[in-house]
Amino acid sequence: MPAATSDPEFMTITVQVKRYDPDTETHRWDEWQVQALPTWRILDALHEIKWEQDGTLTFRRSCAHGVCGSDAMRINGRNRLACKSLVKDLNPAKPITVEPIQGLPVIKDLVVDMDPFLQAYRDVKPFLIAHGNEPTKERLQSQKDRDRFDDTTKCILCAACTTSCPVFWTDGQYFGPAAIVNAHRFIFDSRDDAAEERLEILNEREGVWRCRTTFNCTEACPRGIQITQAIAEVKRALITRRV
């Protein structure tokens, strides 16, 4: 393999990471220079730093292909998945900043405690609730009924949306966009019988009415879910009591 410096495609990028040391409970910014290809993802640059320069850098990643939702970070001031953000799309001439997602307790460097986020998800009962007799065949559904909630089935629970929300930053009790998206997925499912129950949960003080329609969640979603639209649909369902 040719050396990086002799390959005209490689360029030097600067990566600045906001780190947190749990032993001293202090934040600091560290900076590294990495030889990177324009087609590299930010995750590749972070791997390069961790594997070749500083093994103490801590971040989460699992599948590395935009499916598992482990590596949501604030990159250049915006929530994204590190495995879906290319160097060439981020103005590599300037330092690239990487911070942990905001609003959840930081455990170390870029790793945050996802428990409050996942608790809000559990609270909306994200599973099929059907009353009456079990069908002997599959639960049939028309294409139209399936399309009704298609958009909100795409969520990967990466928390990029919830931690981009100014309401969530200041009020951690707010259910947050991700929980509402996952409630929407069942509220508008014709096979589910617990829409009322979920709507009541989201009608609470910290439910959908906290949404201020800043659209940060919609912009941040790596799956392109129209989140603010989904939240507005839940608001309308609460008012009209029709799903």
Binding site: G77, R78, S164, P166, F215, N216, E219, T228
Partner: peptide, 9 residues
């Protein structure tokens, strides 16, 4: 960094 929200924010 300041969150780089867009028109909506």
């Amino acid at each position: 960094t300041l969150y780089r929200g867009r028109e909506g924010m």
